[in-house]
Amino acid sequence: MNESVSIFTLVGRVSKTVLLLVYALFALFPLLWMIIMSLKPDSQMFTTTFIFSPTMENYSAVFLRSDYPHFFLNNLLVSISAVLLSLIVGVPAAYALARFHFRLKEDIAFTILSFRFAPEILVILPLFLIYQRTGLYDTYFGLIWVYQLITLPLLIWILRGYFEDISPDIEAAAQLDGYSWWQVFLKVLLPLVKPGLVAASLLCFIFAWNAFTFPLLLSDARAQTSTVVALRFLASDTVHYGQVAAAATISALPEVILALLIQKHLVRGLSFGAVKG
């Protein structure tokens, strides 16, 4: 009896490991493929798979002989600013939607969420015209503003759940303990929603960083971001897959580094229930 049980556990363990391994391959292979491509010279792009003579040529072409770093920094600047703006606007909004009762509350909350419903391509034409007229076209601020469509609803809806989980009694208790409302907010509420705050900010950053349609059509030489510029290595006359891959690899780095740094918060933050006393 014991033996059969141990065989079952053994089979279970082995199959679990095998499945996880398959999944890991499935998930990581595109990344690996991208890195391999970025190290291949153009001449070996289609003739080799895993065995080739690696070169840093693509990286130096992208970084030293093009203006790609400029657009990379653009993307950083625009994405980080978009997340910061979302935090400044979204945290109080999420708190208000969670805590206060006012007319049309649910309608407002739903409207905010509905910004995420329409595909970007659907609203891009009117936005393009408005941006052209108002002078927001190809400005950092214009991009940061339009990115709020991507980041703000996400942030508000994640944080609203967190604020709703905090009992109003806790706020009242802190006020009775001798703190003003602002101090309560900073010392008691913010630490409690921190996992959600971190997770939501990271997600917002990733969505903002990966944004393509908006920067493609609402920006040009000045404010364009790396996601759009990476495609420029695919011109009609010359196709440099290696350089695209190098640009993409570099572009993926900030997300990977960020995700690794705050992995712990991300998992906790998205699984909720962190506030339950």
């Binding site: 009992s167 009242a172 208790a173 009775l176 303990d177 008691v188 339950k276």
Partner: peptide, 17 residues
């Protein structure tokens, strides 16, 4: 509430988790 110098024990305890 902070200026009234009262202390309260809540039914839910309202401890800071």
């Amino acid at each position: 509430p902070a200026d009234r110098n009262v202390a309260m024990v809540f039914e839910s305890y309202a401890l800071y988790p």
